[in-house]
Amino acid sequence: MKVQAFAATRSGSKLKPFEYELGPLKPDEVDIDIEYCGICHSDLHMLKNEWGITKYPFVPGHEIVGKISAVGKMVTHLKKGQRVGVGWRSRSCQTCEQCLSGYHNRCLIGEDVIVGRHGGFGNKVRCQALWAFPLPDNLDIKTAGPLFCGGITVFNPIVQNGIKATDHVAVVGIGGLGHMALLFLNAWGCEVTAFSTNPKKEQEARNFGAHHFINSNNVDNLNSLANKFKMILVTANVELNWDAYINTLAPGGKLHIVGAVPQVKATMSPLISHERSIGASPTGGPAVILSMLEFCTRHQIGPLVEEYPLSKVNEALEHLDAGKARYRIVLRNDLA
């Protein structure tokens, strides 16, 4: 089966029309006719080979919504014509300790949609059926794609850290990930503080659900919040004043990192003396993704998106790379 897509042939190059053969469908797989695909910063990292794992030609795209067009003979829970979403992961072994414990997203021999294979900037994509999630009828198909990577990336830490509706929490960085974190945490019932170096984002952050907005350019603002937060969710991908943020954690609090920060340098004594911790996570397992979709349906949560046709993919990537996206970008498949 031929797939029409857009691919880069080398690091940082423009995407150009690209055709490839999908090959035989495995018994546990499904094929999906793509309707929308989000653009994530991970696509940019991979496009530029900043993580050193990109194989060219490279087809980005891992926030996919579309309809199933073919079903493997072992697949019983999905059917042709059903609308599904696919995120970062495309396969897990289902037999290792991580998979059997429900952490399929941590499977060491799994497969990711855009690592060593082609992603969703095209008209079709294939994945293991476990990683194709039925889309609830009342979720907007245009805005649903980013939930399957950016959304679950910030939803998973809420579940993982046992966050309660009575907790005080904070989000660092109000962008593609951060604005979804604010939406989730507000609907969860938490008291939510947004940290940003851009004071112009205050009103938008409050619209997304922040009860408080802190300009993090001023360290004194951080010092005034000592021992406050159960969790600080770091969605930024830059170096921070780690000790200053750790000081704002309540005893037993967690600094949870989901942004691609280069490194963390922190003084140990404030962590030890107050049993604070630093952690990180990728996306989430299938059970948590299904819970997120139910939560989004119940609270009518979806990201704020800008839409481009797939044929304008290079223009959309430039818009994201320039930091102008508000707040996620989705590509509408306009291939014939």
Rank of each mutant, 00 (worst) to 15 (best):
F6M: 11
S11M: 07
F18K: 01
K26N: 14
D43N: 12
L44S: 15
L44Q: 12
H45M: 08
P57E: 10
F58P: 10
E63Q: 12
G66C: 12
M74T: 07
C93W: 07
C93Y: 09
E111Q: 15
F121C: 14
N123R: 14
R126G: 01
L130D: 14
L135T: 04
L135A: 05
N138R: 15
N138W: 12
L147Q: 13
C149V: 08
C149M: 07
G150R: 08
T153S: 15
N161S: 09
V169F: 13
V172H: 12
G175Y: 03
L177F: 08
L177A: 06
H179F: 02
A181T: 06
L182F: 04
L183T: 05
N186M: 10
G189A: 05
T193A: 02
F195A: 10
T197N: 12
N198T: 14
Q203K: 15
E204K: 14
R206Q: 15
R206Y: 00
R206M: 15
H212K: 13
S216V: 10
N217I: 01
S224Y: 00
A226G: 08
N227T: 04
T235A: 14
T235W: 07
E239T: 14
K254P: 00
V264N: 11
P270Q: 07
I272P: 00
E275D: 12
G279K: 07
S281F: 02
P282W: 09
P282H: 09
T283K: 03
G285D: 09
V288N: 08
F295L: 11
V305K: 10
N314Y: 05
A325P: 06
V330E: 05
V330T: 11
L331G: 11
L331Y: 10
L335A: 01
